[in-house]
Write a protein that binds this DNA or RNA. Structure first.
Lengths: 342, 342
DNA sequence: TTGTATGCGTTATCAC
DNA sequence: GTGATAACGCATACAA
């Protein structure tokens, strides 16, 4: 809607100068008399002048806006990432356009399109679970358009990625359980097509092997949804059917871990005495449940902040994407609480 | 950055027609021959033409974008609201620009400015705790600019607000505790300057009075931060110092409720046998802690969706703001779990 | 030191 | 049926 905002023209008319003079005076271009500058700035202030960002975008073919494509906003980890993105973008003078895909590739594609239509300067992506074909990103990348992938990264070449060190997080968690004397550790894994789930699985496996424990693929059970309900059902099933009873669970995420905890309690087992449990993500509730849940903390805020810093450095050509072709990996931290200490 | 996107001009040149013809053909304007329309659309498709949204915004003085101003992204309730906003905006063809204020009014003001610079069509606001002066919104409202406030609403006239029925949520929660036989109910209140906290307090108070229980202001303790730590400390203090020991806590939010639960357990009390507890917001963890926490669910997604529907109706002038001058109130729902049933 | 002219991509107005 | 032109607000190459 029209809000009759003052424009450069208005200022020019009022002062009987040309709009180019005003434009230059406002930006302290050389070759404008101090007197003129003063007058222009004074009047601009008085008229409450604000440059029209849309006109600027059109002129410059850029918008000082970055796009964020994320599977779900209602997700503790992603919300911390968004927070990190927003902080850095704001501090560097960029706006943030946010879309969630609800894990649907169709929506992901249409969002990318919309963003491109809006002369967006770059995009941050954590793609949907449905996304296996990356052409909609590849096209842009080939033209040199700045994209940074975070958390979920594609298996195509020459992308800039920011990830969490899932492998070492999982390794440390498993090692910790072993050090606490747990030996029969089940891994409640994530969807095997996601790289993060693969890495956590690998960390679990290697930790076992490095400590002389046989790795048994049957002790890895996939939890596709990652809800507490699912974790509970699967765990109950495990306790009922496994010939050898597990003495610990290392879960791909905290929700599944909680599910496991509930199932174990329901089966009359004590946590951590009979069963050790470690989750992944360090959701807020970890410190609120009883017993408090050990978990691998992922630096969500830092991930968002780092990805944004990199993206904006690319946008502003302060750095080239070649500098980031190896994934930037952020450290995880194992937070030991009561659920895994005996 | 330039991505050499095809423009209307490119199509016109290729077909030896004027850009006006192309523009009209693309939008099925009357008075263009079917033949031309066909050719234009075909070529547009082939050249992968997409209208430049920025040019459109400049031309039309609007951007098909709405702004969201929110205190914190990392907050379960707000994240569900954002989700609702994004869903409706997307389905109606609007983009969403998101900013968080971190509860700082300076940032709130600058965000409003930035949004206005970008020809935004309307804004959704939940203002910061620092905001007591609403001039930065009043200015815009006076000019007829569409703004919808949600969750936290200002005490100025003629605003469109979407809120949750905090009063009846609190009333129902308190009534439920009374029905379960709890009599000495402490209210862990929120910051008294926030209307939502006042309403919950009022609901608590009226429920007590309607059931013939004396309301004692000393049994209302303010938790300003709303963290579990704070709730725990305050509750411990209460248990230690109150001459008459409480038998229930009704908290302004779930975090405080968890804190209370932990403090009670630490003091050797059993929940729900000795102490009943009810929280507010129904955070995800309510069903994961032990005992599961009764809580008043706020329809966050619905709040975001409703606020956005209203905003867009205002933007598109389908409705006038007069229709919404009474706050739109969304129902809460008391979810009874184990922490308050004996 | 300042002004003029042009273009960013689109559409509305008027003309033919 | 279609085209020429102007305008949205701004920045800049070129003139003066």
């Amino acid at each position: 809607m029209k809000l009759e905002q003052a424009t450069i023209k208005d200022i020019a008319r009022e002062l009987n100068v040309s709009s180019s003079t005003v434009s230059r005076a406002l930006k302290d271009y050389p070759g404008i008399s101090d007197e003129t500058k003063r007058k222009v700035k004074e009047l601009a202030e008085k008229m409450n002048y604000r440059p029209n960002a849309i006109a600027l975008s059109l002129r410059k073919s850029r918008s000082f806006t970055i796009g964020v494509i994320i599977p779900e906003v209602v997700h503790f980890f992603f919300s911390t990432v968004i927070s990190g993105i927003e902080e850095v973008a704001y501090s560097r003078g960029y706006k943030v356009i946010l879309t969630q895909t609800n894990e649907m590739i169709a929506r992901e594609k249409s969002s990318v399109q919309t963003m491109m239509d809006n002369q967006i300067d770059g995009i941050l992506v954590s793609f949907s679970k449905e996304t296996t074909d990356f052409d909609h990103f590849k096209n842009l990348l080939d033209k040199g358009f700045p994209i940074v992938f975070f958390d979920r990264i594609p298996n195509i070449e020459n992308t800039v990625n920011v990830v969490v060190d899932d492998y070492s997080g999982a390794y440390e968690a498993t090692k910790h359980l072993l050090q606490q004397g747990y030996r029969r550790i089940v891994h409640l894994a994530g969807p095997s097509n996601l790289k993060i789930a693969q890495e956590r699985h690998r960390g679990y496996r290697n930790a076992l092997q490095d400590h002389g424990i046989d790795y048994n693929p049957q002790w890895v059970v996939e939890c596709t949804q990652g809800t507490d309900d699912e974790g509970q059902k699967i765990t109950a099933e495990i306790l009922r059917t496994f010939s050898e009873t597990p003495d610990a669970f290392f879960a791909n995420n905290d929700m599944a871990a909680v599910g496991a905890m509930l199932a174990c309690k329901a089966a009359g087992m004590r946590v951590p005495e009979d069963i050790g449990i470690v989750g992944f993500s360090n959701w807020q509730f970890c410190s609120m449940i009883d017993p408090t849940l050990s978990s691998v903390a992922q630096p969500g805020f830092k991930m968002g902040a780092t990805a944004t810093e990199i993206l904006l450095d690319l946008v502003e050509k302060k750095k080239s994407s070649e500098e980031f072709l190896d994934s930037v990996m952020l450290d995880t931290e194992l937070l030991v609480r009561k659920s895994s200490v005996r």
